[in-house]
């Protein structure tokens, strides 16, 4: 009590520090989350599955996620084409894919269209490469516009990638 003049300041400082620490610990999950950015270059059926499973897994575990669709991947964003790609291996003129799809149904693997909706519902962002649209003559109205956040170019991918701890080329 001898230091009655100084004590209140010291105590206040300590109390504030304690409260800050508690706040930081309690709200650790509210800090800016880590991010994953995927380039979806392939339009293959199985690789699209990989991309959406990884994207949805990341979102489910508290990361942010962005998918940048380009070339054959972008082509899969045309209406009704999401699951129309071939298998990357053992496609066998469609016979291999038919067998894989049958196995997937049996194992209750969620269809790609639903995975894409889940990705959006959990806050994932989808970017469409506008150069690919020009090369392939794809108009925005031909695409699943409800899934797409932005029509853009490499600069947007780099902006997303430089903020990411993980980036994959699929």
């Amino acid at each position: 009590m001898k230091c009655s003049q100084a004590a209140p300041d010291v105590e206040t400082g300590a109390a504030v520090a304690d409260r800050d620490v508690a706040q930081v610990e309690g709200e650790a999950h509210r800090r800016k989350p880590e991010k994953i950015t995927l380039i979806v270059h392939s339009g293959d059926f199985d690789k699209l599955y990989s991309a959406f499973i990884i994207g949805n897994g990341a979102l489910s575990m508290g990361m942010e996620a962005s998918m940048y669709f380009t070339f054959w991947g972008l082509s899969r964003l045309r209406r009704g084409r999401l699951a129309s790609g071939p298998l990357s291996k053992m496609h066998l003129l469609g016979l291999g894919k038919l067998m894989v799809k049958r196995r997937m149904r049996k194992q209750r693997v969620r269809p790609l269209e639903e995975m894409a909706r889940d990705f959006r519902e959990l806050g994932g962002k989808i970017f469409a490469c506008d150069m690919t649209m020009d090369i392939m003559g794809i108009k925005a109205e031909q695409l699943h516009q409800e899934l797409i956040d932005e029509y853009c170019a490499v600069g947007t991918y780099i902006r997303e990638a430089r903020e990411s701890t993980v980036t994959l080329f699929i």
């Binding site: 499973i53 949805n56 897994g57 979102l59 489910s60 575990m61 194992q107 209750r108 693997v109 969620r110 889940d118 519902e121 959990l122």
Partner: peptide
């Protein structure tokens, strides 16, 4: 029950949101 990867994880996240 009966669902496979990544459905249980995704549905957990949806419910938590």
């Amino acid at each position: 029950r009966g669902e496979t990867c990544p459905v249980p994880l995704v549905e957990t996240r949806k419910a938590l949101r």
